[in-house]
Design a protein around this nucleic acid. Structure first.
Lengths: 352, 352
DNA sequence: ATGAAAGCGCTAACAC
DNA sequence: GTGTTAGCGCTTTCAT
């Protein structure tokens, strides 16, 4: 049995090897593997036999190089993290659309780090991807103008471009947060805490704005509960809700505006035994949210739709669509399940 | 403002454009961009200025072609679905290791379809990925022997290779299922149902074997509850548990041996209000399993470790490691939380 | 219907 | 230190 290493590599056959074996010119082989016309049935047959005898697989990169229509049939997808369920759903949707076009996708996680954003995009363009679908965090995307001018279509997902006019597919985050917050206010809450993702993330800012607008409109103070740190992890959600609940004037409702924060927040309320007394609404649906006790009310984004629309828009550009810049808004949906409908206690003081 | 399409594409500059602008030969440019020696500081400076003036980005594909050491700095990762949390965790871990080696990863979802498995692997090899990390479903991987001989290292994850000797990183699925089942038996259960993924998946078969072994060892009938269909979705988990609970001699414990089945099973028990009376253990941890009521006992696999080890092994092969074929087993861990410790009712008949 | 020559953008080999 | 030539594996162009 042969070893696993690439040592015993009989080199890969090239089109020339196939041509030699079949006794034809390389152009004829090229015609056969690309299914072009002007090849006699007999010749085609001979070539095909040689191809499978040698186990020849055309080198798509080499072909793309000469073809020069700059089609590597490849696309770069920048996500917060391929392991985040929201990102992962986008990833799958993009892959779905891309695979119909024989296009493979490079997905990369940038962890909300602006440096990684830039360096990953650079590796994408050096690889000459046909297009880019980007979630970003940098505050100015002007640096991408050059790429666009050199012919790489770009679609922004989840977060809008800044300093660059480009296609985007977004949730209306302001509105989603506004609706969620109004839902809590309508149940009689006045002490509502917002737990948001890092404010360097534009959607986090939008969500805070939506929260603040709903609060202000109801004559409530959006800044009653200051946030202490700012990453979007389940650990922080846990920590912050613990802290909030230990306050003298603890909130009676919590709006967690990111999926991992929601998970952490739920965990905290359960550990404190407060899950039936403190209202909670999350932004982004979470797995098993319907089975928790109480079930979790959320504003659900639609990452599958976001990914699908973004990929379709990208291919439209690739197909030469010259229409005006498109900014698609994918609606979020309020899913009422229970946790968001808990009412505040009668007393003004929250019972510990 | 310019349109978004690739129409107004000023063509990308090449190394020749840079050389012309800097007034040097192309090889000198090549030296600079590859950080080779034998370039004077002054020349380097001039070249660098030209590079940024033209916004030149070297075409890595073209370089790889000539270099001929067949390093596209690219790797193919075949997963059940990039949207599945288990797969997504592997994806992230692989990306992590790969990025340290400047390697980008093509991840593709094959949805347990053997045809897609083969066709996706074919697109990987046509793109001349440096290596393959594969989850598979086909029953004979002999067709990959050719790839290996032509120098592409392969590591199997989650499911073992069949008909091919190759590296693998796996969970001991038999044992994981055996331990989970014994855990239920030790609590006094005799009517235990197993809900498994599609038996065309080798791990599903292993898990069923582990379940059956533990049952038989205790003198119990593993086949008391026949399964009716066989996909690994939350919908099926829901349906099957509903059906099981409607039986005259309904089981008092359920072992769901895949993450989505566990989710569906939990949902069913909750809807029936049986979550505190029927024991449940899942294979694979699930998000928020600790917060559910009761919290969910699971045999947790470690997808991050699996992905990390697989990628490290792949790069070891790429680095010329000729050691014997390695088959790593990543341990699964029993996480006791509550749902798996529910005891059967005293009566022999399960109360509806 | 077929093939020879040129060349995609780059690096290797070998000049000078 | 620097540049020239050839060539990676393929497709294009243009013969025949």
């Amino acid at each position: 049995m042969s070893g696993a290493g690439p040592a015993n590599s009989r080199p890969r056959p090239t089109i020339r090897d196939v041509a030699a074996l079949a006794g034809v010119g390389i152009k004829t082989v090229s015609r056969v593997i690309n299914d072009e016309s002007n090849v006699s049935a007999a010749t085609r047959e001979r070539v095909e036999r040689a191809v499978s005898a040698l186990n020849f697989q055309p080198h798509s990169g080499a072909g793309a190089l000469r073809r020069g229509d700059r089609k590597t049939l490849t696309l770069g997808l920048l996500l917060e993290s391929v392991a985040n369920p929201f990102s992962a759903a986008i990833n799958r949707a993009v892959e779905e659309v891309a695979s119909r076009r024989q296009t493979a996708v490079f997905a990369a996680s940038f962890d909300n780090d602006p440096e990684r954003e830039k360096s990953l995009i650079k590796t994408f363009t050096r690889r000459r991807v046909d297009g880019l679908i980007l979630t970003t965090i940098s505050t100015d995307h002007g640096y991408l103008q050059v790429e666009r001018e050199q012919g790489t279509p770009i679609v922004f997902v989840d977060r809008p471009p800044v300093g660059l006019v480009a296609d985007s597919v977004l949730t209306d985050n302001f509105n989603a947060a506004y609706v969620a917050t109004r839902h809590l206010i309508a149940r009689g809450h006045t002490r509502i805490a917002h737990l948001g993702d890092n404010p360097t993330i534009s959607t986090a800012v939008e969500r805070r704005r939506g929260f603040a607008a709903a609060m202000a409109e109801a004559g409530l103070d959006p800044d009653r509960y200051a946030e202490t740190d700012d990453d979007g992890s389940a650990e922080r959600g846990l920590r912050e809700v613990h802290r909030l609940m230990s306050l003298e004037d603890a909130p009676t409702a919590v709006f967690t505006s990111q999926n991992l924060l929601t998970i952490g927040g739920i965990r905290a309320l359960h550990r404190l035994g407060l899950q039936h007394r403190i209202a909670l609404i999350g932004l982004d649906d979470i797995s098993l949210g319907d089975v928790l006790d109480p079930p979790i009310t959320v504003m659900a984004q639609d990452p599958t739709a976001i990914g699908t629309l973004a990929a379709e828009r990208l291919f439209a550009q690739l197909d030469g669509d010259r229409s005006a810049v498109s900014a698609r808004i994918v609606p979020a949906t309020l899913i009422v399940r229970g946790s968001g409908e808990i009412r505040p206690p009668d007393s003004t003081r929250h019972p510990r």
